[in-house]
């Protein structure tokens, strides 16, 4: 069999995913709550809500799609270039990609069509809070 290095096999239908709770699920059976729970019990990782604000063809890398996100409470602007078949997990909706047809061909994973306004699950490092400064009496 020819390996397909560009297609990470964790998105293949039937791939076994371990949640932070230790539970094993197939990638196609994952629910929003699985990501939320996993982030809660895993130290150091935090779930962010990342809203898709723009989708366009990548200028730098032909064949890829530039996805523009507003990330987290800060609404930080982040752009990533991905192949059109790359699936994202949309809150309350599930797997979605820019090309559900290609995702189905390459991974066998059923996807919705990713659109502007969709809110995707993303992760970031939990903010390491500085020790509270003691309030010195003046």
């Amino acid at each position: 069999p020819v390996p397909a290095p560009c297609n990470p096999s964790h998105f293949m239908k039937g791939a076994i995913i371990q949640l932070a709770t230790g539970e094993l699920k197939r990638v196609e059976d994952l629910q929003t709550q699985d990501f939320v729970r996993s982030a809660e019990v895993s130290g150091g990782l935090k779930i962010d809500s990342s809203m898709v604000v723009d989708i366009r063809a990548s200028q730098q890398r032909p064949g890829l799609v530039s996805l523009h996100f507003n990330v987290g409470e800060q609404q930080s602007k982040v752009t990533i270039d991905v192949p059109p078949e790359h699936p994202f997990f949309v809150f309350g909706q599930g797997w979605s990609s820019c090309s559900p047809e290609r995702t189905a061909q390459l991974y066998g994973l059923a996807c919705h069509h990713l659109q502007v306004g969709d809110v995707c699950v993303s992760i970031t490092l939990q903010q390491q809070l500085q020790p509270q400064q003691q309030k010195q009496p003046q």
Partner: peptide, 19 residues
């Protein structure tokens, strides 16, 4: 059978610091 960690499925979107 390979087992993948849940966090490999979702993008790591670190806000870029602009200062």
């Amino acid at each position: 059978v390979p087992v993948f960690p849940w966090h490999s499925l979702v993008p790591f979107l670190a806000p870029t610091q602009s200062d």
